[in-house]
Each structure stands twice: as C-alpha cells, then as structure tokens.
Amino acid sequence: MTLSPRRLAIDYGLLILLAGLVAVFAVAEPAFLRVNNLFSILQAVAIVALLGVGVTVTMIAGGFDLSVGGLAAFVQMAAAYSLVVLDGSTGSAILLCLGLGILVGLGNAVLIVRLGIPDLLATLGMLFLLAGLQLVPTGGRSIAPGLILLDGSTAQGTFTDGFLALGRHRVWDILPVPVLVLAVVAAALWLVMAWTRFGRVFYAIGGNELAARLAGAPTRLYRVAAYVISATVASIGGILLAARIGRGDVSAGNGLMLDAVAAALIGHAVLGANRPNILGTVVGAVFVGVLLNGLTMLNAPYYLQDLVKGAVLIGALAVTYGLAPRRA
C-alpha cells in the first residue's frame, strides 16, 4: 500500500511530531538530550502514564474510569496513614494499598456491571467519594511524620527507606523505579491486549458487547476484570506517588485524572490505531512530558502547561476523528 501524506499523518503524525520536538529542544538546549534529563521526563510522566494505562483497559472494554485520579490520591494518603500513623512496615503499606485498589475496582464494577449505572457517572461518583474519604482520618490535613492526631497524640511512624526507594531510587543510578514499574505494567498489559485471545475479547466487548456475549465470551466477568485492573494499576500509581513526595498530601491528586484521560485519548492517534491501545497511551503521556520539559527548559512560563496539553489533545483528537478513513 502506498503511503499518502494523509495516511502518513494518521499513522505516524504523532511520532514524527515527537521526534521533531526532541530535535528542536535538543538544538535549542543541548542539556535536553542528556540521559539524566530523558529519564527525568519519564519519571515525571510515569504516574500519569500508569493511570492512563488503567483507563485504557476500561476504554478497550467499552467503558471509562474517571476514578483513577481520585483513587491514586486516596491510596497515596492511605500509604502515608499506614506508615506514619499506624507505624506499619513497607510490605503492609503496599498490601493495604493494593487491597484498597482492588476493592475500589470491584466497587466500580458493582455499580457499572451489576447496577447498570453508566460508566462515566459511576466513576465520577467514585472519584468524589474517594477525594472526600481521604480527608476523613486526619480531619483534612496532610500526613507527615510527627503529625498531631485528632485525639491530640503524636503519630509515631515514619516513611520507611524501603518505601521511599519506590519513588526515589534509581536502578544502576539511572533508571528510576517508577519508570521501571511503568515499563513492566505497560508491557504486560500490552502483551495481553495485543497478543492474546483475552485481549481480543476485551476489544470485542468494547466493539459490541452483545456480539461478544453471543460468541460465548463471559462479558460481565471481563468488564469486572477491566475495572479491577484499572483500579489496581491506579493504586500502584498511588503508591509511587506517596513514595515520591514522602508524605500524604491532600492535594497530590489534583489534575492526575485529566492528564491520565488525556494520555489515553492522545494514544488513540498513535500508529493509526484509532482505538484505545496501551502503547499509544504511554506514548501520549511521554509526548506531553517531553513538551512540558522542553518548554520549561526554554523558560516558558509554567502557566502555559494546561494550554499546551489542551492543544496536544485537540490535535490528536482531530487526527483520530477528522483524518481517519471513513466510508462516504
């Protein structure tokens, strides 16, 4: 098949643009291309990318999960509470966080699959619920070692070194742990979604649930799985977030949800997929990260960030919906 400019734009537009951006930034600011800086970019986008990958799984199954941002923030607070207030170990904090994530995923699944609430509404409700719930144990305050509790006593625990390493350690002094986690999670989900029969069924459910059901797929089970996967991945994101900032910050989750959803939507436009895909989401998150990092290096004011994200999102959507081939 010959590559028309239009086809080229659909398939490789975003990647070409990404390469172009890297080239421009590298010329304008040679420090941009340093390995350290590149990993900093990945470090910066790792959590958003993880949440986006989770959202992508639900989108593949024809749903949506808005609650991932709220869940990551909630889990971040839960990790801090477990470590600081309960004086728990690294392992117990991680288990608690993953357990909460699975629970929230099952909760979303009950609302959407069992009660039949539209996915956007159910997960929007869950988003608010979690954003509120995270404030309850501490009366709305952030959690740091030495926190004065509601009963007047002082918290005895602290962030363990092991836990902090999850957010701050660099493997071989170069590869940040969150980037490694993202790589492993994204690769695993990509393999499942692109190369196994299970992934095919997820896509089929997203395409036409009843057709998939009549083809013999237990579609409700798959949809429940999609929300549990999404929530579990989001709680991993929450753990990494807590480890990176080293305290339980009530405002840490701001903007995470929108960034994650944006990454997933930008991902539709990668390699002409025109549908949610794991790899595309990661590329989408990295794209935004590169742009923001480069602009910061060039001393662009911080308040332009949302403007830039919006422009990228709209551009990607224009490619997905405007250029993609449709029969007249």
Partner: peptide
Amino acid sequence: AHGVALDLGIRE
C-alpha cells in the same frame, strides 16, 4: 446490533 462489532476488523 448483535452479530458484529462494526469498528473491529473483519478478521477480528
């Protein structure tokens, strides 16, 4: 409505 997923490929 029930037999095919319109946005997926013929192969799929």
